[in-house]
Design a protein around this nucleic acid. Structure first.
Lengths: 300, 300
DNA sequence: AAAAGATATAAAAATGAACGATATCTTGAA
DNA sequence: TTCAAGATATCGTTCATTTTTATATCTTTT
């Protein structure tokens, strides 16, 4: 049996040219090799197909009927191969895929929402599936190919993932519009004169990134309320004189009008990164999304 | 630009196995080469596709999205290639082509007619185009691919054609049924007592194969009629007491009932051969026809 | 009769692929 | 913790195959 594993597929490229030229010499010219080289390859082809393929005529070669019958299939095969190795192109307007992203609620609001708007404007057929972030499970789902992207803090990202830092956002203090300290330069005393609310998934355990910087800060003693996420923060602030520490980017995009409380102290900040499986490093669609994400991160 | 002439198509066979195994080591086992060899080919593939194709994981390799997207096309391509190099098969029942044959009228009657019957019985979709023989023009038409086969005498066939002798047929003497000499052993005298008719395309010039052997034969003096072909011979014989010299095979297949006139003299004979362009030597359909022709020639 | 132009062949050179040994990394087990 | 197992990548070296140069052979053409 004539097995493909034994066959030299590269010889088919020579056969293709031979079919065009019907001349070993001319084919050699076109292939930029010498005539004996093509003659040698022709021998291999004759062996492979168990057919002379070409018989001599005064001016070169006449293809056998087998060679003629091979012609269309050879052309098709090489054209397919050319397609195969051609660099892939990504056309946003026509791209059709689902992007699955996991992010905490801060990043959902501050980054993903505007990202989705950009995506929908440029690539209307692309769907986006957004998931809350559960770091441990998320990493596994990235590994399994269920998730394309996870957004979190650099420390929370698996080391074997590809990742990219997006931006660093300083915390600011915020309160309801009309709050006594709103839009003012507040002193430390007046700032600590109000009770505070902080988003802390672990409650008063205060574990996680932000709280490293605030470890023995007097601020923590003034925290009266902790929230698991930013969702209800606007309405809580609106209905009280509580002051919240939030990343700056949330100030403008969070629903409900809030004011900044300016204080002299240098505030901690959080750095945000995107991570994905290295398998997607060169994926054109994925790279396109990452470019959009990077552009969005650079704004404001 | 990534040109197919530069690409090593054989590497695609390795990529195919790699996509199956997701392991350089396993792929190497399946390919019966060493692991570094596959690793080396993988490098070439990475270069060719400008993509890592696989990233490492604890147990081997994880394909990139590009590699995954390549998978179906690779499978298809290799399957096509396998088809391409697979030995061709010829199925008479389904074969669909036109066989163009040129032969003199003797062979048309004695060989081609039964051949057509065989062909029609075995390969109902095959058409046969029959042409009278004009050796010079026929050879050119064979060379040009218009004719698939020419049947003639070995001397009349171009030397650069492939050819095969089919049979040798002795001349016999024939006359109408009821002729005084019919079915008898005739003496030379009684045989020469009748006028004769002979097929001689050149008339009384008596040129050609048969007449070499009869050059100074007294028979030629008794020839009263010459015919350009065998077509009208039966009716001429039926309507006269003429005796004809015809190849034995014509006796049974020629229309109109004829009887043999047996004579003691050793008769000349003609040898018949088929010729075709060497390009068709390995053509399966052509070989099938030649086999039928050979089988038919062996009969009677 | 020789010159031109074609393919095939032979020996030598050069290229490229496969090998064995080894480095490096990760995982899983003692 | 350490060690063994198992994975890919890398490094020279060896070996096989392709390519080249040179030549033979055949046919056509001048």
């Amino acid at each position: 049996m004539n097995d493909i594993l034994k066959a030299d597929l590269n010889a088919l490229k020579v056969l293709d040219v031979l079919l065009d030229e019907c001349s070993v010499s001319q084919a050699a010219k076109r292939l930029h090799v010498t005539q004996p080289s093509v003659s040698y390859t022709l021998q291999k082809l004759r062996d492979l197909f168990d057919d002379p393929l070409f018989v001599r005529n005064p001016r070169g070669l006449t293809p056998t009927s087998r060679a003629e019958s091979l012609r269309p299939a050879i052309k098709q095969l090489l054209s397919d191969a050319q397609q195969l190795i051609a660099p892939p192109v990504f056309v946003p307007e026509e791209a059709e895929f689902t992007l699955s992203v996991s992010a905490n609620d801060y990043l959902q609001i501050a980054l993903i929402v505007p990202l989705v708007q950009r995506i929908r404007a440029l690539a209307p057929k692309v769907k986006v599936a957004l998931f809350d972030l559960d770091s441990k499970a998320a990493a596994e789902r990235v590994r399994g190919g269920e998730l394309d992207l996870m957004l979190s803090f650099p420390q929370a990202l698996p080391a074997d993932f590809s990742s990219e830092e997006l931006f660093t956002d300083p915390y600011i203090a915020a309160a309801r519009q009309g709050h006594p300290l709103a839009d003012q330069q507040a002193s430390a005393e007046s700032f600590l004169g109000y009770d505070h609310v902080i988003v802390s998934p672990t409650g008063f355990a205060f574990e996680g990134g932000l709280f490293r910087d605030l470890h023995h800060s007097p601020l923590l003693d003034k925290v009266a309320v902790t929230l698991p996420n930013f969702a209800v923060l606007p309405s809580l602030l609106a209905a009280s004189d509580l002051i919240a520490m939030i990343p700056r980017r949330l100030l403008s995009v969070m629903s409900g009008p809030l004011s900044e409380v300016k204080i002299a102290a240098t505030m901690p900040s959080i750095t945000v990164a995107a991570a994905w499986h290295p398998r997607l490093d060169h994926d054109l669609a994925h790279r396109w999304v990452r470019n959009l994400l990077r552009a969005e991160a650079l704004l404001a």
